[in-house]
């Protein structure tokens, strides 16, 4: 294979993976931007959905792609309840308390799954798991193409929701100006709960998509949470496009990085890039 092909292959892989990252990052950005909470447990919602679609496949033979709506509804519901039962009660608390509430959630969900299902790494093999399409020598995994398509559909639906519906408009108003939104008669706590639900639900869709080509285990959310944070810091959380673009850039960089670096160097670089972005990008620096 020529080096151009290898390089092109890396970019295509990065774009496909980056689109999945985008979905997860948009979810995190929604919660961060609207509820003004850092959701450390974001990757845990992804993991829950992944486990759900894994078990549906193993016990009921339901294809992971079919179980996406169910994964979304489950994580949406959980997110809604988390906001209603926990976060809404500490909205006025110091940010230390808020950070620790979502951190507690991370510990409970991740280690709850650890205790319940053990540290085993599970995976699913479907008829399309290994299938690829060959395009001018570049191989594209069918399942990742599926995933990208679903991500695009979900993002468009979310965009329509945020711009065309009353609830979506309320959310955008809330992220701009809390007081004004209250004056408009918006029930803040309910909108928060739905926003957290949607954010978690997006991570859930990501988790269900991962089931068919990735591994399912209690700590699987860690790298995805990290990447989501980097994407949001890179792209900002004022709109959908920012974190999405951030995520795609990270996906491509990661994929190219894997070509030219050892895995351990690549991991260090991820953190260095994260720090550099944090320090350079002024929007991250003066909020709060």
């Amino acid at each position: 294979m020529s080096s151009e092909i290898i390089f092109a292959q890396a970019i295509v892989d990065g774009l496909l993976m980056g689109s999945l990252y985008a979905l997860i990052a948009i979810g995190l950005a929604m919660i961060w931007g609207i509820v003004e909470i850092i959701n450390f447990a974001h990757g845990e919602f992804l993991m829950i959905a992944s486990f759900l679609s894994y078990f549906l496949f193993i016990y009921l033979g339901i294809d992971p792609l079919i179980s996406i709506p169910l994964a979304f509804l489950t994580t949406f519901g959980l997110g809604y309840l988390v906001q209603k039962g926990i976060i809404n009660r500490i909205l006025e608390a110091p940010f230390l308390t808020q950070i620790f509430a979502t951190f507690a959630l991370l510990l409970i969900i991740r280690n709850g799954f650890f205790v319940a299902f053990g540290p085993d790494i599970r995976s699913v093999t479907t008829w399309y798991s290994e299938a690829t399409i060959d395009l001018y020598g570049i191989k594209m995994s069918i399942v990742k193409l599926f995933a990208t398509t679903i991500v695009i559909i979900a993002t468009i639906l979310l965009h329509l929701f945020l711009t065309r519906t009353y609830l979506g408009t309320a959310m955008r108003a809330l992220s701009q100006d809390k007081t004004a939104a209250q004056l408009m008669g918006i029930d803040i706590k309910k909108v928060y709960a739905i926003a957290f639900g949607l954010g978690a639900g997006l991570a859930g869709i990501g988790g269900a998509l991962l089931t068919s080509f990735y591994y399912v285990f209690p700590e699987m959310g860690v790298p995805f949470t990290l990447i989501a944070f980097i994407s949001v810091v890179l792209g900002g959380f004022g709109n959908i496009l920012g974190p999405a673009i951030g995520a795609v850039i990270i996906g491509v960089l990661q994929s190219i990085g894997a070509l030219i670096m050892t895995p351990s160097m690549k991991d260090i670089l991820v953190y260095i890039v994260f720090l550099a972005i944090l320090l350079i990008k002024p929007t991250g620096i003066f909020s709060r």
Partner: peptide
């Protein structure tokens, strides 16, 4: 130079 959430993440 970072505050709050951003300091914690860094």
């Amino acid at each position: 130079r970072l505050r709050g959430h951003w300091f914690a993440l860094a």
